[in-house]
Protein backbone atom coordinates (compact mmCIF):
# COMPACT_ATOMS: atom_id res chain seq x y z
CA UNK A 1 0.00 0.00 0.00
CA UNK A 2 2.85 2.32 0.88
CA UNK A 3 4.26 1.36 -2.48
CA UNK A 4 1.13 2.38 -4.31
CA UNK A 5 1.09 5.68 -2.45
CA UNK A 6 4.69 6.30 -3.45
CA UNK A 7 3.85 5.44 -7.04
CA UNK A 8 0.90 7.79 -7.06
CA UNK A 9 3.24 10.61 -6.04
CA UNK A 10 5.03 10.20 -9.36
CA UNK A 11 3.32 12.18 -12.14
CA UNK A 12 4.96 9.89 -14.71
CA UNK A 13 3.23 6.89 -13.18
CA UNK A 14 -0.14 8.62 -12.94
CA UNK A 15 -0.06 9.71 -16.59
CA UNK A 16 1.12 6.28 -17.75
CA UNK A 17 -1.41 4.40 -15.66
CA UNK A 18 -4.34 6.63 -16.66
CA UNK A 19 -3.46 6.27 -20.35
CA UNK A 20 -2.90 2.54 -20.18
CA UNK A 21 -5.80 1.51 -17.98
CA UNK A 22 -8.02 3.95 -19.85
CA UNK A 23 -7.13 2.15 -23.08
CA UNK A 24 -7.77 -1.25 -21.52
CA UNK A 25 -11.14 -0.22 -20.09
CA UNK A 26 -12.05 1.25 -23.45
CA UNK A 27 -11.06 -1.95 -25.25
CA UNK A 28 -13.12 -4.02 -22.83
CA UNK A 29 -16.27 -1.93 -22.56
CA UNK A 30 -16.55 -0.12 -25.89
CA UNK A 31 -17.97 -3.23 -27.66
CA UNK A 32 -21.09 -2.85 -25.52
CA UNK A 33 -21.79 0.38 -27.38
CA UNK A 34 -20.15 -0.26 -30.73
CA UNK A 35 -21.27 -3.41 -32.51
CA UNK A 36 -18.11 -5.26 -33.51
CA UNK A 37 -19.95 -8.02 -35.39
CA UNK A 38 -20.14 -5.74 -38.36
CA UNK A 39 -16.52 -4.60 -38.13
CA UNK A 40 -15.46 -6.57 -41.18
CA UNK A 41 -18.51 -5.62 -43.26
CA UNK A 42 -18.61 -3.08 -46.03
CA UNK A 43 -20.70 -0.21 -44.73
CA UNK A 44 -19.86 2.61 -47.09
CA UNK A 45 -17.75 3.77 -49.99
CA UNK A 46 -13.98 3.39 -50.37
CA UNK A 47 -11.84 5.79 -48.32
CA UNK A 48 -14.59 8.07 -47.11
CA UNK A 49 -13.23 11.00 -45.17
CA UNK A 50 -14.04 11.22 -41.46
CA UNK A 51 -17.57 12.51 -41.05
CA UNK A 52 -20.56 12.48 -38.70
CA UNK A 53 -21.54 8.92 -39.61
CA UNK A 54 -17.99 7.53 -39.88
CA UNK A 55 -15.93 9.40 -37.27
CA UNK A 56 -12.63 8.15 -38.60
CA UNK A 57 -13.69 7.46 -42.15
CA UNK A 58 -13.63 4.13 -43.98
CA UNK A 59 -10.87 1.97 -45.45
CA UNK A 60 -10.27 0.75 -48.99
CA UNK A 61 -12.93 -1.95 -48.56
CA UNK A 62 -15.42 0.52 -47.22
CA UNK A 63 -15.19 -0.67 -43.61
CA UNK A 64 -15.76 1.68 -40.67
CA UNK A 65 -12.37 2.63 -39.21
CA UNK A 66 -13.76 3.17 -35.70
CA UNK A 67 -14.85 -0.45 -35.52
CA UNK A 68 -11.71 -1.72 -37.21
CA UNK A 69 -9.45 0.21 -34.85
CA UNK A 70 -11.37 -1.00 -31.79
CA UNK A 71 -11.09 -4.57 -33.01
CA UNK A 72 -7.42 -4.00 -33.84
CA UNK A 73 -6.74 -2.52 -30.42
CA UNK A 74 -8.30 -5.52 -28.73
CA UNK A 75 -6.19 -7.87 -30.85
CA UNK A 76 -2.98 -5.97 -30.18
CA UNK A 77 -3.58 -5.91 -26.43
CA UNK A 78 -4.39 -9.61 -26.51
CA UNK A 79 -1.13 -10.35 -28.33
CA UNK A 80 0.83 -8.08 -26.00
CA UNK A 81 -0.52 -9.67 -22.85
CA UNK A 82 -0.30 -13.24 -24.06
CA UNK A 83 3.27 -12.75 -25.28
CA UNK A 84 4.13 -10.90 -22.06
CA UNK A 85 2.66 -13.59 -19.82
CA UNK A 86 4.39 -16.35 -21.75
CA UNK A 87 7.78 -14.62 -21.86
CA UNK A 88 7.59 -13.62 -18.20
CA UNK A 89 6.48 -17.02 -16.97
CA UNK A 90 9.03 -19.00 -18.95
CA UNK A 91 11.77 -16.43 -18.31
CA UNK A 92 11.09 -16.26 -14.58
CA UNK A 93 10.94 -20.03 -14.18
CA UNK A 94 14.13 -20.61 -16.15
CA UNK A 95 15.87 -17.68 -14.44
CA UNK A 96 14.94 -18.64 -10.90
CA UNK A 97 15.59 -22.31 -11.39
CA UNK A 98 18.99 -21.76 -12.99
CA UNK A 99 20.01 -18.96 -10.68
CA UNK A 100 18.96 -20.81 -7.56
CA UNK A 101 20.15 -24.28 -8.49
CA UNK A 102 23.49 -23.25 -9.93
CA UNK A 103 25.97 -25.81 -11.19
CA UNK A 104 25.55 -27.75 -14.42
CA UNK A 105 21.81 -27.11 -14.72
CA UNK A 106 22.46 -23.40 -14.50
CA UNK A 107 25.26 -23.60 -17.06
CA UNK A 108 23.01 -25.40 -19.54
CA UNK A 109 20.05 -23.09 -19.01
CA UNK A 110 22.34 -20.10 -19.22
CA UNK A 111 23.80 -21.35 -22.49
CA UNK A 112 20.31 -21.74 -23.95
CA UNK A 113 19.35 -18.30 -22.76
CA UNK A 114 22.38 -16.71 -24.32
CA UNK A 115 21.87 -18.67 -27.51
CA UNK A 116 18.33 -17.31 -27.79
CA UNK A 117 19.55 -13.80 -27.09
CA UNK A 118 22.20 -13.99 -29.79
CA UNK A 119 19.77 -15.26 -32.44
CA UNK A 120 18.03 -12.15 -33.79
CA UNK A 121 14.50 -12.83 -32.60
CA UNK A 122 12.82 -10.62 -35.16
CA UNK A 123 14.40 -12.55 -38.00
CA UNK A 124 13.18 -15.80 -36.44
CA UNK A 125 9.78 -14.26 -36.08
CA UNK A 126 9.73 -13.33 -39.77
CA UNK A 127 10.99 -16.73 -40.93
CA UNK A 128 8.58 -18.73 -38.82
CA UNK A 129 5.64 -16.49 -39.65
CA UNK A 130 6.44 -16.70 -43.34
CA UNK A 131 6.59 -20.48 -43.19
CA UNK A 132 3.18 -20.63 -41.56
CA UNK A 133 1.21 -19.88 -44.71
CA UNK A 134 -1.96 -21.34 -43.29
CA UNK A 135 -3.45 -20.77 -39.88
CA UNK A 136 -1.35 -17.82 -38.81
CA UNK A 137 -3.63 -16.77 -35.99
CA UNK A 138 -3.31 -14.02 -33.39
CA UNK A 139 -2.61 -16.61 -30.70
CA UNK A 140 0.15 -18.24 -32.68
CA UNK A 141 1.80 -14.89 -33.37
CA UNK A 142 1.60 -14.06 -29.66
CA UNK A 143 3.11 -17.39 -28.67
CA UNK A 144 5.88 -16.90 -31.21
CA UNK A 145 6.71 -13.49 -29.83
CA UNK A 146 6.66 -14.84 -26.28
CA UNK A 147 8.89 -17.73 -27.30
CA UNK A 148 11.54 -15.40 -28.70
CA UNK A 149 11.60 -12.79 -25.93
CA UNK A 150 11.69 -14.89 -22.75
CA UNK A 151 15.52 -15.00 -22.61
CA UNK A 152 15.69 -11.32 -21.64
CA UNK A 153 13.56 -12.00 -18.60
CA UNK A 154 15.45 -15.19 -17.84
CA UNK A 155 18.80 -13.48 -17.92
CA UNK A 156 17.93 -10.66 -15.58
CA UNK A 157 15.92 -12.85 -13.21
CA UNK A 158 18.77 -15.33 -13.08
CA UNK A 159 21.22 -12.62 -12.08
CA UNK A 160 18.92 -11.47 -9.29
CA UNK A 161 18.13 -14.99 -8.10
CA UNK A 162 21.74 -16.05 -7.93
CA UNK A 163 22.69 -12.97 -5.93
CA UNK A 164 19.77 -13.65 -3.58
CA UNK A 165 20.80 -17.26 -3.25
CA UNK A 166 23.93 -16.42 -1.32
CA UNK A 167 22.07 -14.19 1.10
CA UNK A 168 21.98 -15.37 4.66
CA UNK A 169 18.20 -15.42 4.88
CA UNK A 170 18.14 -18.25 2.35
CA UNK A 171 20.67 -20.23 4.39
CA UNK A 172 18.63 -19.51 7.48
CA UNK A 173 15.45 -20.69 5.77
CA UNK A 174 17.22 -23.88 4.82
CA UNK A 175 18.38 -24.64 8.33
CA UNK A 176 14.83 -23.83 9.39
CA UNK A 177 13.94 -26.86 7.29
CA UNK A 178 12.28 -25.14 4.32
CA UNK A 179 12.41 -27.10 1.06
CA UNK A 180 13.45 -25.67 -2.30
CA UNK A 181 9.90 -24.91 -3.37
CA UNK A 182 9.13 -23.08 -0.13
CA UNK A 183 12.36 -21.15 -0.39
CA UNK A 184 11.60 -20.03 -3.92
CA UNK A 185 8.02 -19.19 -3.06
CA UNK A 186 8.58 -17.47 0.29
CA UNK A 187 12.13 -16.21 0.20
CA UNK A 188 12.99 -15.48 -3.42
CA UNK A 189 9.82 -14.59 -5.31
CA UNK A 190 8.76 -11.77 -2.96
CA UNK A 191 12.13 -10.11 -3.52
CA UNK A 192 11.81 -10.49 -7.27
CA UNK A 193 8.11 -9.69 -7.60
CA UNK A 194 8.47 -5.98 -8.24
CA UNK A 195 11.27 -6.59 -10.67
CA UNK A 196 9.45 -9.34 -12.55
CA UNK A 197 6.42 -7.10 -12.80
CA UNK A 198 8.50 -4.34 -14.36
CA UNK A 199 9.97 -6.75 -16.87
CA UNK A 200 6.46 -8.02 -17.60
CA UNK A 201 5.35 -4.51 -18.49
CA UNK A 202 8.24 -4.12 -20.88
CA UNK A 203 7.47 -7.50 -22.41
CA UNK A 204 3.87 -6.43 -23.04
CA UNK A 205 5.08 -3.25 -24.70
CA UNK A 206 7.58 -5.06 -26.88
CA UNK A 207 4.95 -7.73 -27.68
CA UNK A 208 2.61 -5.05 -29.01
CA UNK A 209 5.42 -3.46 -31.01
CA UNK A 210 6.65 -6.78 -32.43
CA UNK A 211 3.17 -7.76 -33.50
CA UNK A 212 2.65 -4.41 -35.23
CA UNK A 213 5.97 -4.69 -36.97
CA UNK A 214 5.43 -8.22 -38.19
CA UNK A 215 1.91 -7.40 -39.35
CA UNK A 216 3.08 -4.22 -41.00
CA UNK A 217 5.27 -6.23 -43.34
CA UNK A 218 2.40 -8.52 -44.16
CA UNK A 219 3.20 -11.50 -41.97
CA UNK A 220 0.52 -10.83 -39.39
CA UNK A 221 -2.47 -12.90 -38.33
CA UNK A 222 -4.82 -14.05 -41.10
CA UNK A 223 -7.84 -14.56 -38.89
CA UNK A 224 -8.19 -11.13 -37.40
CA UNK A 225 -7.34 -7.45 -37.68
CA UNK A 226 -4.76 -5.94 -35.42
CA UNK A 227 -3.35 -2.44 -35.39
CA UNK A 228 -0.43 -3.69 -37.46
CA UNK A 229 -2.72 -5.38 -39.95
CA UNK A 230 -4.66 -2.12 -40.39
CA UNK A 231 -1.42 -0.29 -41.14
CA UNK A 232 -0.36 -3.04 -43.54
CA UNK A 233 -3.63 -2.90 -45.45
CA UNK A 234 -3.57 0.89 -45.61
CA UNK A 235 -0.01 0.73 -46.91
CA UNK A 236 -0.89 -1.89 -49.50
CA UNK A 237 -3.85 0.18 -50.70
CA UNK A 238 -1.53 3.13 -51.21
CA UNK A 239 -2.99 5.24 -48.41
CA UNK A 240 0.38 6.87 -47.82
CA UNK A 241 0.74 8.17 -51.35
CA UNK A 242 -2.86 9.25 -51.70
CA UNK A 243 -2.86 11.36 -48.56
CA UNK A 244 -5.38 9.12 -46.78
CA UNK A 245 -4.09 10.18 -43.33
CA UNK A 246 -6.97 8.51 -41.47
CA UNK A 247 -5.72 5.14 -42.69
CA UNK A 248 -2.30 5.60 -41.07
CA UNK A 249 -2.36 8.10 -38.20
CA UNK A 250 -5.05 6.78 -35.84
CA UNK A 251 -3.58 3.25 -35.69
CA UNK A 252 -0.02 4.58 -35.33
CA UNK A 253 -1.06 6.97 -32.59
CA UNK A 254 -2.83 4.24 -30.63
CA UNK A 255 0.26 2.00 -30.74
CA UNK A 256 2.50 4.88 -29.71
CA UNK A 257 0.24 5.88 -26.83
CA UNK A 258 0.04 2.35 -25.40
CA UNK A 259 3.76 1.72 -25.62
CA UNK A 260 4.56 5.17 -24.29
CA UNK A 261 2.21 4.65 -21.35
CA UNK A 262 3.87 1.33 -20.54
CA UNK A 263 7.30 2.93 -20.69
CA UNK A 264 6.15 5.66 -18.32
CA UNK A 265 4.81 3.09 -15.86
CA UNK A 266 7.99 1.04 -16.05
CA UNK A 267 10.21 4.06 -15.63
CA UNK A 268 8.37 5.44 -12.65
CA UNK A 269 8.35 2.01 -10.99
CA UNK A 270 12.08 1.79 -11.35
CA UNK A 271 12.34 5.05 -9.46
CA UNK A 272 10.23 3.70 -6.62
CA UNK A 273 11.65 0.17 -6.43
CA UNK A 274 15.28 1.08 -6.90
CA UNK A 275 16.33 3.03 -3.82
CA UNK A 276 19.46 4.25 -5.54
CA UNK A 277 17.41 6.19 -8.08
CA UNK A 278 15.18 7.54 -5.34
CA UNK A 279 15.85 11.21 -4.77
Amino acid sequence: MKLLRNLLKSPMFVIGAVLFFGTILFAIFAPFFIDLKTAMDRVGGQYLEPSGSFWLGTDDLGRDYVKLLLQGLRSSLYVGFLAGVLATTVGTLVGIYGGFKGGIIDDILNMFTNLFIVIPSFVVLILVSASLEQGRSLTIIALLIGATTWPWTARSVRAQASSLKSRDHISLARINGANTLQIIYKHILPYLASYVFMVFIMQVASGILSESAISMIGLGPMDNVSLGVILNQAKNAGALGDGIWWGIFPASIIITVIVFALFLINNSMEGVFNPRLRK
Partner: peptide
Amino acid sequence: HWNDVQSVFQDPFSCFNQFF
Protein backbone atom coordinates in the same frame (compact mmCIF):
# COMPACT_ATOMS: atom_id res chain seq x y z
CA HIS B 1 21.42 -32.65 11.38
CA TRP B 2 19.77 -29.23 11.75
CA ASN B 3 17.63 -30.56 14.57
CA ASP B 4 20.90 -30.72 16.54
CA VAL B 5 23.22 -28.26 14.85
CA GLN B 6 22.19 -24.65 14.31
CA SER B 7 23.87 -21.43 13.29
CA VAL B 8 24.02 -17.68 13.82
CA PHE B 9 25.18 -15.80 10.76
CA GLN B 10 27.27 -12.72 10.41
CA ASP B 11 24.99 -10.05 9.04
CA PRO B 12 21.79 -9.89 11.06
CA PHE B 13 20.17 -7.62 8.47
CA SER B 14 20.43 -10.09 5.64
CA CYS B 15 19.32 -13.00 7.81
CA PHE B 16 15.67 -12.17 7.91
CA ASN B 17 13.16 -12.00 5.11
CA GLN B 18 11.91 -8.43 4.95
CA PHE B 19 8.44 -9.50 3.84
CA PHE B 20 7.49 -11.31 7.06
